[in-house]
Computed example of a mutant assay.
Amino acid sequence: MKLTHLFALSSLLLPVFAAPEPPPTEVIEERNEYDDNKYFHEPGGSDQLSHYDIRHFNGEEVTYDERVDTLQHLVRSYLSVFREKNIETWIAHGTLLGWWWNGKIMPWDWDLDVQVSASTLTWLGENLNMTTHNYTSVKEDGTSETREYLLDINPNIVERIRGDGQNVIDARWIDVHNGLFIDITGLAETNPSTQPGIWSCKNFHRYRTRDLYPLRETVFENVPALVPYSFDRILTEEYSARALTKTMHEGHRWMPEQKEWIKLEQQQLDRRAHVPRSIQGEENPKSGLRNLLRVL
C-alpha cells in the first residue's frame, strides 16, 4: 500500500523535475518603412533627396537647371490653377523671401512653400484630393509644353496640432515627372478663446490676423499671386532683418543691375573664402523692398 502511494507521488513529481522546454523561437517582424504615422514620404539619404515625393522619384536627381525650371513651373501652375478655381492661397517662408527680392524663386531652393486657411484646406480635402491638373506653359522660343501635377491632401489635416511632428505638411502640389513639390500648410486659430486673432500651423509659425489680411495682390514668377499684408514684418520675424540685405547666400550673389541671384563658379567662391570678413566691403544692395513696392 505504501509502495503504491510512493509510486503515485513520484509520478506526480515527474513533470516538476523534467528538463525545461526550450524557449520559444523569437519572431522578429520586419518593419515596413511606411508603418509609422507619416503620410508623405521622401527617398531620404541626403538633404536633396528629402525634397522628392518618393512615389514619383525616378531614382535620378535633377540638375541645377532642371530644378530651377521645375520649381518655376510648379509655382506658376499652382497659382494659376488655384486662381482659376477661386481658391485663396498665398506664398510663404523662403518663397515669400524670394518674392521680396525680385518676384522670383530663390535659385538654390529645393521646394516651395504656400499657405491656406484651415477651412480652405478642409474644402480641398473634400473636393480636390488626389486630383491631377495639366498646365501648359509657353517657352521663350514660342513653343508650348504641358506638364502634369498632383494635388495630394494629408488625411491628418483634421488635427491642427503638431502631434508627433510627422505630419506638419498638410498637402502637396507634386510634379509627377520627377517628384519635386510645393509644401502646402494650413493656418488656423487653434485657441480662439485664449488667443483670438492668432493663426498658427503645425510647425509653430504664428501670425496675427492683421499681418495676414487683407492679402496683397502681386505677381510672382510672372503670374498673379497673393502675399500677406505685413510681409516685411513676417519676413523679419522669421529670418531677421539680415535676410533682407545680405547679398551672398548659398553660393549665389545678388546682382542689383540685373535684379537676379547669380550662381558663382567654384573659383569665385574659393577666392571669396580667402578674403577676411573684416576687410570685405559693406554690402548695400539696391534691391529688395524698393523693387517689390513697384509690383504692389
Rank of each mutant, 00 (worst) to 15 (best):
V75I: 15
M106Q: 14
P276T: 09
G94M: 02
A118T: 01
N178Q: 07
P196S: 08
S11R: 12
A273W: 00
V138R: 15
R208Q: 13
N156F: 06
F40Y: 13
E21G: 09
A225D: 06
G103M: 04
A273G: 00
E257W: 06
R206E: 13
N191M: 08
P43N: 04
H51N: 15
T236F: 00
M130A: 12
S117V: 05
T89H: 06
C201N: 15
I105D: 03
L9V: 10
N156M: 08
R55A: 05
E29T: 08
H205Q: 14
D35V: 02
P192S: 07
R277A: 14
L180S: 07
I87L: 13
D65R: 11
L244H: 12
E238N: 13
E66H: 01
R253Y: 10
S10F: 15
E61S: 12
Q258T: 09
H252R: 06
M1P: 11
E145Y: 00
H133F: 13
I184L: 13
R294I: 01
L212K: 11
L215A: 08
R210M: 08
S144E: 15
I279Q: 06
T122D: 08
A171S: 14
G165L: 05
Y207E: 09
H56M: 00
E250D: 12
R272I: 02
W108S: 03
L128C: 10
L264T: 06
I105P: 03
L121G: 03
R172C: 03
V81T: 14
H249R: 13
D69W: 05
H177K: 14
R277G: 06
S117Y: 06
L215E: 05
I153L: 10
R242Y: 12
